[in-house]
Simulated scan of single mutants.
Amino acid sequence: MELELIKRCVEEDRRSQELFYKQCYAKFIGTAYRYSNGKEQAVHFFNLGFVNILMNLKKYNPENPFDYWAKRVLINTILNELKKERREQERFFPAEDISQFSQTTWDDDDEMIREKIELIREKANLLPPMTKNVFNLYTIDGYKHHEIAALLDINENTSMWHYSDAKKKLRKMLDIN
Rank of each mutant, 00 (worst) to 15 (best):
A70W: 01
F45M: 10
C9F: 06
E81H: 13
Y163L: 07
L126Y: 06
K169Q: 10
V51M: 09
S164R: 10
F28E: 05
E90M: 13
L74E: 04
A95L: 14
Y60C: 03
K167R: 12
D141N: 11
K169F: 01
F93G: 08
H145W: 07
M160D: 06
F50M: 00
R14Q: 09
T131M: 06
D107C: 14
M160G: 09
E40W: 06
G30C: 07
K83I: 13
I29G: 01
K39F: 08
F45N: 02
W69C: 04
M55E: 15
P65S: 11
D109V: 09
E12S: 07
K27G: 05
N56L: 14
N61C: 13
F92A: 14
F20M: 05
A149G: 04
K58M: 09
N47F: 00
D110M: 04
E81M: 13
L127T: 02
K172S: 12
Y21C: 02
A166K: 01
D153S: 14
F135R: 03
Q17V: 01
V73P: 03
E2P: 00
Q41V: 08
V51I: 11
F93N: 10
R14F: 03
R91V: 00
C24G: 09
H162V: 00
E115S: 08
F46C: 05
S159L: 04
I176N: 06
I117S: 04
F20A: 01
N157D: 14
R87H: 07
L54E: 09
S99M: 15
T131Q: 12
I113A: 07
F20E: 00
R114C: 02
D67E: 15
I98T: 11
F135M: 01
F66D: 11
D67V: 08
Y68A: 11
V10F: 00
F50L: 09
Q41G: 08
L137G: 01
E18N: 02
F28D: 03
I29Y: 05
L137A: 04
H146M: 06
E96A: 12
I140L: 08
R8E: 07
E147T: 04
V51K: 13
